[in-house]
Design a protein around this nucleic acid. Sequence first.
RNA 1: GGAGAGGUGGCCGAGUGGUUGAAGGCGACCGCCUCGAAAGCGGUUAAACCGUUUAAACCCGGUUUCCGGGGUUCGAAUCCCCGCCUCUCCGCCA
Length: 421
Amino acid sequence: MLDIRVIRDNPDLVKKGTALKRVEADVDAILALDTQRRSTLTRADELKSERNTLSAEVGKLLKARENADDLKERVRQIGEEIKGLDEKADAIDAELRQSLLCVPNLPHESVPEGAGEEDNRVVRHWGEKPTFDFTPRPHWEIGEERGFIRFDQGARVSGSGFIVYAGAGAKLQRGLINFMLDMHVDRHGYREVQTPFLVTRDAMTGTGQLPKFEDQAYRVSEDDLFLIPTAEVPVTNLNREEILNGADLPLNLVCHTPCFRREAGAAGRENRGITRIHQFDKVEMVKVVRPEESYEQLDILLQQAEDVLQALGLHYRVVEICSGDLGFSNSRQFDLEVWAPGMDRYLEVSSCSNFTDYQARRMNMRFRREAKAKPEFVHTLNGSGLALPRTMIAVLEGYQQADGSIRVPEALRGFMGSDAI
RNA sequence: GGAGAGGUGGCCGAGUGGUUGAAGGCGACCGCCUCGAAAGCGGUUAAACCGUUUAAACCCGGUUUCCGGGGUUCGAAUCCCCGCCUCUCCGCCA
């Protein structure tokens, strides 16, 4: 969330930023609550100060075996008044926090202005679209025909939007996961973690999925836990409520998890095959860094995600996300879109974002530069490296051959033990 | 799931109703000593919020916080209730 002081001191800046993001946020209501909160707090504090003084006097009187009944009664009355003010302050506080949680992060000044997806900017391309001497087929045809992807069995077990990988398809996904993890660990210097897939409401709130987007998450109501929509949630929250040692930054963490998304209202034409399913695997990179280096780290993160696609020999483009399409908690974001020849379109396989101190403030995650320095909020970033289904699509469609077999990308041959499946 | 024990500052660990934000130790930082270091000696060492001030901040005044939430009391780290977490034993189980 945003620093209330920033909102207090620069309300217009905040209004401008949220407008750029095309998000409604009632800044004036927040300012009013803030003023109310402070005046209530000031009055309560004064009374508490008085109570503390008088209480000490009661103690002295009692110790001297003198009567303190009158004083006691007076303090009791003050106590009641304090109780009322505290309750009021708590109520205002809760309301203020709720409002604050619904204000998005502000876009970085470099972010192009735009209303939505259509205004995103293609920054560059890498590689070239593969050419075929036959009409490349979409992955759902290939996958079904070869038994790599069992849509029927996924639906049978869990309903529509769930799939089963089988045989060489299952092994291919496993190979991709290993390949990605190894690259980030061995080459990019990340530390691998394995986290829970069910997280608390606090964790979901910390990274920004809640309270605004609860309808997108699977929830286990019995325990009020949520199935993670991305490893970003458990991994970023790993050090919440902590003051980190500045010498330990930046933290570079990589994690493979399944991701669960309800995708309410997203069924249909655009999402045929496995482009958008309720459960998919993803390798995610998370960085926790010093504030002054977060934008530089975003470039590094993006490059590291690109490295995976390049190593797999997949043509892709880098897209800079405009203000109106920017994620709720993001200040700047680049997507990687891989080419899927069978579908004849680009697919988002990675999203690399800087969250500045927005998540850190929600999670209360800070660091100390030096031994006695004041704690400061860290900056957090994350990027997919990569989402598996769409990588799978690009491989199946991009490496398909006329006879229906799939060439195995060089990088995966050692693992697969063959050069075609 | 059942029974018991426990959750105090960066860490260890005192503290059972009134100058305890919290003894003592460790660690860290500063200074002295030293050619330098170690040892030794002295000092410093929680966070948030409100107010004041300011270019911003420090300082200063106040409040809160000893797992979280309620309660008792003039006053709670200390007493009571609920919850969460950790450990031990039992049960169960990949």
